[in-house]
């Protein structure tokens, strides 16, 4: 598995898109710090970008990598390798190279501007952690879609749709439901709704860490009470992990039965 991982990783690290992705974060980081020296504000801007972009890039890279390397995957399949080894290895290769682009790309400007010495370092680290987590989740989901649809166009369409649902439509539905039932207490509904979408969960986790959490009002307090405890944190991280593990298990099981 390590070998496959290594090759997928090197393969991606050499591709133009990895550089672009890396440079994007690098430039973004420097520009943000250049424009405002307030770290917390930079983190809020980054939050906006990361919770939208990491899932999108993860999805697109995942899908693209699967389809473009399909023949090569077949070559691998004819080699004495377990199927789960091949796919999990490729998955990890993609995920690690994308996460690395994110962490290093943003890490360099942050270190250059001396954030490691400020109190924001924890907020910043958790932002990167969540960004990496979202990459893990969405590449896994994209791989699931790719394994399900042999048709490239169909797979790509579904992947984008998935991203759109998670990043945009889901929130729209929550909003409509909430406005429809605004006479009822909605805090628990909000909590449940957020938990089931990794993008929302990530967004809330970061928001609660930043001082803008005060703006979340009473509902925010309910969230704070839930996620503020170590138990809540464990639950949150577990849920995010489930979002990685379940798709990963499905990758393994689908790969085992699939014909190539």
């Amino acid at each position: 598995m390590i070998k496959i991982l290594k090759y997928s990783f090197y393969d991606l690290m050499r591709s133009r898109w990895s550089y672009i992705y890396f440079l994007f974060y690098l430039i973004l980081g420097f520009v943000l710090f250049f424009l405002n020296s307030d770290v917390n504000k930079a983190i809020i801007t980054l939050l906006n970008i990361i919770i939208v972009l990491t899932p999108l890039i993860g999805t697109v890279f995942g899908i693209m990598y699967y389809y473009t390397s399909r023949e090569f995957t077949e070559l691998l399949l004819s080699q004495p390798l377990k199927r789960s080894t091949i796919f999990v290895g490729q998955y990890l290769g993609i995920v690690i190279s994308l996460s690395l682009s994110l962490v290093v790309g943003l890490g360099i400007p942050f270190i250059a501007y001396g954030v490691t010495r400020s109190a924001a370092v924890w907020n910043f680290s958790s932002l990167l952690f969540i960004g990496a987590f979202l990459t893990f989740i969405f590449v896994a989901l994209a791989y699931n879609i790719a394994l399900t649809f042999n048709d490239k166009i169909k797979g790509f369409g579904f992947a984008i749709l998935l991203w759109l649902v998670m990043a945009v439509i889901y929130d729209g539905l929550i909003m409509i439901v909430m406005m429809q039932y605004s006479d009822y207490p909605l805090d628990n509904f909000a909590l449940a709704a957020v938990i089931f979408n990794p993008i929302d969960l990530s967004r809330i986790l970061i928001l609660l860490k930043l001082d803008i959490s005060a703006l979340l009002g009473y509902t925010g307090a309910v969230f704070q009470r839930f996620f503020g405890t170590s138990m809540g944190m464990i639950i949150a991280v577990s849920i995010l992990s489930v979002w990685v593990i379940l798709p990963l298990l499905r990758i393994i099981s689908v790969a085992r039965k699939k014909d190539f």
């Binding site: 393969d11 591709s15 023949e71 090569f72 070559l75 080699q79």
Partner: peptide
């Protein structure tokens, strides 16, 4: 598969 050598139909390798 350690004891098989296989030549696939379309040789499409990683580009990079």
């Amino acid at each position: 598969r350690n004891h098989i050598s296989y030549l696939p139909q379309i040789a499409n390798f990683p580009q990079n």
